[in-house]
């Protein structure tokens, strides 16, 4: 079986935990994450005949940016940078985290998720900003953890990139 470590990165309350929750089965209680600072879930993704077991590291805490340590990202084969479409400041935080992750895990594949697409009318992140990400070579997917839009797609896409 193929296993991959995947990290969820992004500013506070962009929806990292919600995205993972949409997608997985968990065994650890919620209380865990508070002290250790990380919650781990897993999900089996099948691509063609390849079964990939994703171990999803979701960081917990209010000040996510401060808490991201190199050990947390190290060894990851992929990571999501999650931004909240309705809060423009999460765009910059996301990009900073991307730099940090790129440093800690240079080989890892990245997908940028702009979350809360159910609220697209209230988005502060502009189409121009998204265009910029795409022209910088990022894979960008708009998701909604709330309405379960493109969540599965996002995880499948990252998996596809990781096992290529």
């Amino acid at each position: 079986m193929i296993k991959k470590k995947v990290c969820m990165l992004g500013a506070f309350a962009v929806g990292k935990t919600s995205l993972v929750q949409r997608f997985v089965n968990s065994i650890f209680s919620g209380k865990y994450q508070t002290t250790i600072g990380v919650k781990i879930d897993q999900k089996m993704v099948s691509l063609g005949e390849t079964e990939v077991n994703l171990l999803l590291w979701d960081i917990h805490g209010e000040d996510d940016f401060q808490k991201v340590k190199a050990t947390y990202v190290m060894g990851a084969s992929g990571y999501f940078i999650v931004m909240d479409g309705t809060r423009n400041e999460t765009y910059q935080v996301g990009l900073e985290l991307e730099k940090l992750a790129k440093n800690a895990a240079p080989q890892a594949k990245c997908v940028i998720l702009i979350n809360k697409s159910d609220l697209i009318r209230d988005w502060e992140i502009t189409p121009g900003q998204i265009e910029k990400l795409i022209s910088d070579g990022f894979k960008v997917i708009q998701t909604s953890a709330k309405d379960n839009l493109a969540v599965e797609t996002a995880f499948t896409e990252l998996t596809r990139m990781m096992i290529k």
Partner: peptide, 28 residues
């Protein structure tokens, strides 16, 4: 990576997949 490479136990465990999460958690 904290990934579980292999595991052995004295008696068969039904859902060995939990071990993957336990392994990552231990590493964390």
């Amino acid at each position: 990576t904290g990934l579980l490479l292999n595991q052995v136990q004295e008696t068969e465990i039904k859902d060995a997949r939990n071990a993957d999460m336990v392994s990552s958690m231990m590493s964390a």
